[in-house]
Write a protein that binds this DNA or RNA. Sequence first.
DNA 1: ACCCAGGGTCATA
DNA 2: TATGACCATGGG
Length: 228
Amino acid sequence: MGRPSCRNIYYRLLAAYGPSGWWPGDSAFVVMVGAVLTQNTAWANVEKAIANLRSANLLSPQAIIDTRSTRLAKLIRPSGYFNVKTKRLRALCHWLIDHGGIENIGSASTRELRVALLKVHGVGPETADDILLYSFRRPVFVIDAYTRRIFSRLGLITGAEGYEALRKRFEAALGEDTSLYNEYHALIVRHAKGTCRTKPLCQGCCLARVCSHVAGISLGSDIGAVKK
DNA sequence: ACCCAGGGTCATA
DNA sequence: TATGACCATGGG
């Protein structure tokens, strides 16, 4: 077998955890709502908030805009930062409607879409990429704190790279593959919540062998920059 | 009681 | 550009 690579790590994670089935969303819009609500928040809390919105029949852009902020905030309360997220949710909905809805927006190129998303209040790099990948099904690799933690511990990145730099490295290393990005990000998140959170060197986990190889591989050779 | 969670904005230097 | 404060609930 070759040296541990970005793909190799993916296969190890997949073998260890199995398919993730992300995003557990229904419509493209619900996925977007989840992307905003899950900012710095445990997913279990987001599910409660989405359930509340569903019960109130508010899972559409127009319905959310037509709902008063105080009521909206009350419904999404379990997901935390409810005042902040109320504003962000509305901003997202206004953007969707002002641009002809999801279907129409979906005809834009990935690059255009990303630029547009980043202009929406409350949508930063990670949320934008969550939406691009999981809602619009575009080949965009999502970078998050877990990705930095895991790959810097493996020595494949420094962890101090900028968001865009990291994203492009992963995309270059993996090739354009929406399904792969989808599953990989999910696996990273699931893995990060496991034993490796308390075991920095992944002893005993599915990446232990990779860790043991770290000293001997060209770090990140397949992720972009070759480190000596 | 403390820490963290599927981040982002805004003010300040 | 680079920190730091702030947002807030719920589970371990």
